[in-house]
Nucleic acid binder design. Structure first.
Length: 508
RNA sequence: GCCGCGUUGGUCAAGGGGUUAAGACGCCUCCCUUUCACGGAGGAAUCACGGGUUCGAAUCCCGUACGUGGUACCA
C-alpha cells in the first residue's frame, strides 16, 4: 500500500482567500491523518496573470496557519521543480503523444477566426458557442488540413495550440469522494486547449501530467473545477490509465452574503476574505487579512474546518491535532456554505479564552506599541491581558479593553455620574483617599473591605459608589472588577485617579 | 441557452422511512454583576414547492422552482 500524497496547487494571482485556505486545510488534514505527504505545487502556467510576490505570500499564509508542506518550490522535494513554468518542456511531450494517438490535434485558428466562429454560431439558445465536435471540422486544424499542410505549418513555427478531441456521445463518469457518482455527456464538453501557443500547458494538461509524475493519490480542489473534470478523466484514460487516476474531491464553495464570496464582499460587508494582508503590487490596493484583523491562526483554521465539515458530534472547537485525528472526507458537505463573520468572531473569542495569554502576547504588545503605549513589564502585561481576555473577540480588542491599565482616563462617562454626584459622594471619596493612603496591604479584598466599611459608616449605598469609583479609574462602565483594577494599577495611580476625577466631578 | 452541482431556522448544521427535528452563532427575556463581558436559565425561528412510492416521508423516486459553478490559448 503506497503512501497517500495530496497536493495543493494555487495559482499566484493575488491574495489567498477563504476558499483557498480551506482547500489547503482539507488537503493537509487528509494527508496528515494518513501519515502521507502534503505537497504544494504552483500553478503559474499563465504568466500574464502571475502577480509578483504572490507566491511568497501564499507560503507565508500557510506558515501562519501551521500547514507546512512536505514538498514545494520553497521546501524542496524529490519531484522538483514544483513550479509549472519550470516544467514547461515536460508537457509538450505528452501533448504530442496525444496527437499521435489520435486523442488530440493541432489547431491553427487565430483569435479572430475563433471570434468569428463564436459570433457565427451565437444565438439566444446558444450564447457561448464552443469549439467542439460540431464545429471542429470547419476550423483550421490538423483534422481538416492535409498531413502535408500541417507539417508545413509546424515547420514554419505557425502559431498553434493542441486541443483535446472530445469523443461523441460517450458518458464520462467518475467517483468523487464528496459528490459520489458524477457523469457528463462528452458531446457537451468542448475541445479544451491543452497546450497554448506560447508552449505553456493549460491547467488541464498540467494537473494530469504533474499528478502522475508526482504520484498524487488524492486531489482536492474547489467545486468550480467539477465541470472540467471530464477533460481530466479523459486525459488520465489516454495518458496513464484510469486505474492510476487520483481520487477526486470537489470541495463545496464558500459563499458571501450574496453569491460566491469575493474580495469585494470584504470591503462591502466589513470583514476580511484573505488569510493575511495582501497588497496588490499593481494597484497598491490593500486587502485586509484575518491575521491583521486580529484572528488567531488556531481560530482561523478551526472555523474554516467546520465550514462544510463536521464529525457528527457536538464538538465545535478543534485544535489542529484534533482536526487531523477526526477529519474524514466522507463527512464533508456537498453543498456550499455561507460565511458568517459573527460566528467567525465567536471562534476567535473562544480561542482567545482557551489559549494561554503568552501565546499571543507579543502580537498584542505590538498593537499597544503602535498605538503609543510602551510595554516595559511583560509580567504585568500578561496579568492585564489575563484579566480582560474573556471580553475580547479579536486581538485588536485588547487595546480598548485594557488601555486604562496604562493610561488614566481622559474622558469620563458623564451621564452615569452626573445624576449620582453630590457633596456626600464627594466627602466619601475624599475620605477614601485617606483610608487608601493608610491601608495595610494593597490587595483587592482589603480595598473592598475598606470601601464598604466607609460606605456603611457614611450610610451611602455601596453599589452607586462602586459605579462611580469605576468611572474614576476607567472612564466608563466597563472592565473587570473595580477592586481588581485598583489592586493591579497600584495605590499611587488609584489615588491619583480619584483625585483627578474628584476635580472634574465637582464641576458637575 | 446548455451542462454540472446543490437545497433542514437569518447563518453553520445533526438526523438518511416512525424523533417532542439535536447542537452552535446571531436575536429576545430573565438570573448573576448596580459596569462591560463571562457564566447560567428560558424563548422565538426550519425540513423550497408539487406529485408519487409507503400503513407512515425531512429522509426514497420524479418533476418544478431557486441558488451556485462552468460554458476562455484563466486558474
Amino acid at each position: 500500500m503506497s503512501k497517500v500524497r495530496v497536493r495543493f496547487a494555487p495559482s499566484p494571482t493575488g491574495g489567498l482567500h477563504l476558499g483557498g485556505v480551506r482547500t489547503v486545510l482539507f488537503n493537509y488534514l487528509f494527508a496528515k491523518k494518513q501519515g502521507g505527504d502534503f505537497i504544494v505545487r504552483i500553478e503559474d502556467t499563465d504568466q500574464t496573470r502571475f502577480v509578483a510576490g504572490a507566491e511568497d505570500y501564499i507560503f507565508n499564509c500557510l506558515k501562519w496557519c501551521g500547514m507546512e508542506p512536505d514538498e514545494s518550490p520553497v521546501h524542496g522535494g524529490p519531484y522538483a521543480p514544483y513550479r509549472q513554468s519550470e516544467r514547461k518542456e515536460l508537457y509538450r511531450k505528452y501533448a504530442e503523444q496525444l496527437v499521435n494517438d489520435g486523442f488530440a490535434y493541432y489547431a491553427f485558428d487565430t483569435q479572430e477566426e475563433l471570434e468569428k466562429m463564436r459570433n457565427y454560431f451565437k444565438s439566444v439558445e446558444n450564447p457561448s458557442p464552443q469549439y467542439d465536435g460540431k464545429v471542429r471540422m470547419q476550423m483550421k486544424n490538423s483534422l481538416t488540413l492535409t498531413a502535408e499542410e500541417v507539417k508545413k505549418l509546424l515547420s514554419e513555427n505557425a502559431r498553434h495550440v493542441v486541443r483535446i478531441k472530445m469523443p461523441e456521445g460517450e458518458t464520462i463518469s467518475f467517483t468523487d469522494m464528496i459528490h459520489h457518482e458524477v457523469s457528463f455527456d462528452s458531446s457537451l464538453v468542448d475541445d479544451k486547449v491543452l497546450l497554448k501557443a506560447d508552449g505553456m500547458p493549460t491547467y488541464h494538461l498540467a494537473v494530469v501530467v504533474d499528478d502522475h509524475l508526482m504520484k498524487i493519490t488524492h486531489a482536492f480542489r474547489g467545486e468550480e473545477w467539477l465541470s472540467s473534470a471530464p477533460v481530466h478523466v479523459l486525459l488520465w484514460k489516454y495518458l496513464f490509465g484510469l486505474e492510476h487516476m487520483p481520487q477526486w474531491a470537489h470541495l463545496p464553495l464558500i459563499m458571501g452574503p450574496s453569491g460566491k464570496l469575493s474580495k469585494r464582499d470584504g470591503a462591502k460587508y466589513g470583514f476580511p476574505v484573505f488569510a493575511m494582508n495582501w497588497v496588490d503590487p499593481k494597484t497598491n490596493e490593500l486587502t485586509e487579512g484575518f491575521k491583521e484583523r486580529g484572528f488567531l491562526p488556531e481560530a482561523f483554521t478551526n472555523l474554516l474546518a467546520v465550514l462544510g465539515w463536521n464529525d457528527g458530534t457536538e464538538q465545535e472547537l478543534y485544535s489542529m491535532e484534533e482536526l487531523i485525528a477526526n477529519f474524514s472526507i466522507d463527512r464533508v458537505h456537498a453543498a456550499g456554505a455561507k460565511f458568517d463573520f459573527e460566528k467567525a468572531k465567536w471562534f476567535n473569542h473562544e480561542w482567545i479564552k482557551k489559549l494561554e495569554v503568552e501565546s499571543y502576547q507579543s502580537i498584542v504588545k505590538d498593537i499597544f506599541e503602535t498605538k503609543g503605549i510602551i510595554i516595559d513589564d511583560d509580567a504585568y502585561f500578561t496579568k492585564v491581558l489575563d484579566l480582560v481576555k474573556e471580553r475580547c473577540h479579536l486581538l485588536t480588542d485588547f487595546y480598548n479593553q485594557a488601555v486604562f491599565f496604562y493610561m488614566a482616563p481622559t474622558a469620563y462617562d458623564e451621564a452615569s455620574v452626573k445624576t449620582k454626584w453630590d457633596s456626600e459622594k464627594h466627602n466619601f471619596f475624599t475620605a477614601l483617599i485617606t483610608r487608601y493612603q493608610n491601608v495595610g496591604e494593597w490587595k483587592r479584598d482589603t480595598l473592598e473591605n475598606e470601601f464598604k466599611n466607609l460606605a456603611t459608616e457614611k450610610n451611602i449605598k455601596v453599589g452607586e459608589l462602586q459605579m462611580i469609583f469605576r468611572v474614576m479609574l476607567v472612564g466608563s462602565k466597563m472592565g473587570p472588577g473595580v477592586f481588581v483594577i485598583a489592586e493591579t494599577i497600584g495605590s499611587a495611580k488609584t489615588i491619583n485617579r480619584i483625585e483627578k476625577a474628584l476635580a472634574v466631578f465637582s464641576l458637575y
